[in-house]
Nucleic acid binder design. Structure first.
Length: 487
RNA sequence: GGUCUCAUGGCCGAGCGGUUAGGCACCGGUCUGCAAAACCGUCUACAGCGGUUCGAAUCCGCUUGAGACCUCCA
């Protein structure tokens, strides 16, 4: 596995190019991914990011890396809106639902856990929350102040971007140039406390209406939005670690500011590799709460999104996402989902078929095919290429079944194992369960047996009557060479 | 308004200078009492206009269109 580890190439947003992945400590990976803000149930677009990083996590594990995967939960809601005013999204949701802030967070944390199970996400090594790390955040802010990169005003603390720019490169990740930013920023009002428009809050003085307030050396208040990630990544992974991930929309300002905070306090960029997952689109536009074009992960399972006329399983949704690269936009459409549903079923059937192939001598290069699986994933986790290679394997498997190709017993075993590993362990899919009632099974066995008798007697009227009647009940009979099946 | 990204066959999507990616749909075939299902095969597209090159979807320029970020966002 070490040889395969050495072949892994990752696209580093910090450099804007693919680079060989060299962990700080050989064989070990520290990975931090920005998790959800739990003021509402995560929508499908949010889930795409987590599913993509789950894929990355799974593949790193498969390569034998000892991975420490930290994904935070934002449960302190202070953020700044366009007018420079503080908005407590969690507090607002709490008021709307007449709940206390942590009650809101807990409610959605439970839902998020459930979604992770449904969509087959491996649990991270740890999911720390912002409110449990207020002290750590305060300590880092103190360090930034001590280093001269922050100042306090009226019980609030701001990051001193101009001072920082004398020593470091603000914009190293996002490519933004602060001098240009100033003229381009649309709203320049309500920033009286800041010395400079690009300064951002590290600590905000409490507002009497706030539902969550903490003590600090600067008085009662709330941590700024960006500092929690710096505090938690540092605590669990150290001042420098390997991979920092998150959605593309967090690149600026959130991740840029994280880098500034780490440099401002510890003098180093926290992560060597920055990875950004792209957005999920609906009708060509980013799915988001504010656009209102979002739906919930459970709605697609229930068929209640209002966008599609049927339901899709979590496996199909996940497989659909695996057919697009994590750095690409992905359009959610019914036709594409239907394609994924059929394609996935074909893939799973192929894996079942490979288990019972006649042994012979191989008519194609199985090692090379399996090597292409690794080649795809080692190239910046290119799951769509992997899927294409898997379908190549399925085609070969079906040809063998039809006697048009051959495989040796050894190769059969290798191929079966590789396909199961890549589809189930790495892509994180699972065989679709028929999900039928146990009581129905013997009944259907009986019905199909009766129909088979009718067919044997060439009583097509009766046999078709049974088939059509079942179809009306939503049960499709499939006549196969060795008997009929139903679904 | 600024910065950046993207435009691939009916749909979704790989692709990073030279080989038909792949899935679905369509069409043809195998199988079948018929149908469905399943399987096999076919379908050679790269927004437009120029340029570089022996060779461009792939590099450069312009035009058109779409999106992201600049404000909470995965």
């Amino acid at each position: 596995m070490k040889a395969l580890q050495d072949q892994l190439v990752i696209y580093n947003s910090l450099k804007g190019q693919k680079e060989p992945f060299i962990p700080r400590t050989s064989g070990k990976v520290g990975m931090y991914v920005c998790g959800p803000t739990l003021y509402s149930e995560p929508h499908m677009g949010n889930m795409r990011t987590f599913i993509n990083f789950d894929l990355i996590y799974r593949y790193l594990l498969h390569l034998g890396f000892d991975v420490k995967y930290v994904r935070n939960i934002t449960d302190a809601g202070h953020i700044t809106n366009s007018a420079g005013q503080e908005v407590d999204s969690i507090g607002a949701a709490a008021k709307a639902e007449q709940l206390q802030s942590l009650e809101v967070v807990y409610k959605y944390a439970v839902k998020f856990q459930e979604l992770q199970r449904i969509y087959n996400l491996l649990p991270p090594s740890i999911e720390p929350t912002a409110t449990q790390h207020i002290q750590e955040q305060i300590e880092i802010i103190e360090q930034i102040i001590a280093n001269g990169y922050a100042y306090q005003v009226n019980g609030s603390v701001y990051f001193d971007t101009r001072r920082y720019m004398q020593d470091y490169h603000y914009g190293i990740l996002s490519g933004r140039k602060v001098d240009e930013l100033e003229n381009e920023t649309r709203n320049l009002n309500a920033q009286d406390e800041k010395r400079f428009f690009a300064d951002f809050a590290l600590w905000k003085k409490a507002n009497p209406a706030d539902m969550q307030i903490w003590r600090s050396p600067w008085g009662n208040g709330n941590p700024g939005w960006h500092i929690e990630c710096t505090a938690m990544s540092t605590k669990y992974l150290g001042k420098e670690f390997d991979i920092h991930g998150g959605g593309m929309d967090l690149k600026f300002p959130h991740h840029e500011d994280e880098i500034a905070q780490s440099c401002g306090s510890f003098g180093c960029n926290p992560a060597r590799y920055w990875m950004h997952a792209n957005m999920l689109n609906v009708n060509g536009q980013k799915m988001s709460k504010s656009f209102g074009n979002y739906f919930l992960p459970k709605q697609i399972l229930d068929g209640t999104t209002g966008l599609f006329d049927k339901a899709y399983s979590a496996n199909v949704v996940r497989f659909f996402m695996m057919q697009a690269h994590y750095r690409s936009n992905l359009d959610f459409t019914q036709e594409a989902l239907n394609a994924a549903e059929k394609g996935y079923s074909r893939l799973v059937e192929g894996i079942k078929t490979v288990q019972n192939l006649p042994a012979s001598t191989s008519s194609f290069d199985v090692d090379s095919l399996i090597g292409s699986f690794y080649g795809a994933m080692n190239d910046d986790f290119n799951a769509p290429i992997l899927v294409a290679q898997l379908f190549d394997a399925v085609r070969q498997i079906n040809l063998i079944k039809d006697g048009k190709a051959h495989i040796s017993a050894d190769d059969q075993k290798k191929l079966q194992e590789a396909m199961e590993v890549f589809v189930y362990d790495i892509l994180g899919l699972s065989p679709e369960s028929p999900n039928t009632e146990n009581r129905l099974t013997p009944v259907m066995d009986l019905v199909l047996e009766l129909r088979q008798q009718a067919r044997t007697n060439k009583d097509w009227t009766t046999s078709d009557q049974i088939r059509d009647g079942l179809a009306k009940a939503g049960i499709i009979v499939k006549d196969q060479k060795d008997g009929a099946t139903w679904s």
